[in-house]
Amino acid sequence: MKTLLKLKVNGEHYETYTSIHKTLLEVLREDLGLTGTRHGCELGECGVCSVLIDGQPKLSCLVLPIEVQEQAITTIEGMATGTRFHPLQEAFADLGAAQCGFCMSGMLLSAKAMLDENPQPTRAQIREELAGNLCRCTGYTKIIEAIEKVVAESNA
């Protein structure tokens, strides 16, 4: 069964006529062409597909889009403002926090949500907040360092 979905993604309004059972992850990637949201399990286990819904990190593979038609969805494509990157994106690039890059979209959005809520997290809090986002390349070390760089710069 198909339905007309109206979604607000990265401040843009989208309408798409699609299967009603599709997850937000599938609609973003397949119907809206926003392939920056990656998938690693489709079971809510890895954090790779994280997006922000009204600023809160959510696993898009577990969200039915029909339920979030009224809410503001942010994907990685919406993290930069035009050609101006978010400080987290700059810091991740500067400190080597991205290797294969596959977990990056979810990681950056989760980190952004964390800093929006708590601009001064301790290292322990960063670990706790991001424990749902798996990365197989970095050993998390450079990711933590990049977030701490942004925290330190926001103090300066």
Partner: peptide, 21 residues
Amino acid sequence: KASRKVGVMQKVSGQTVYAGD
């Protein structure tokens, strides 16, 4: 010298095209 990785800005902005994309 420590410097940015080639292609890293595409990776942090979701632009990298993997096979599945």
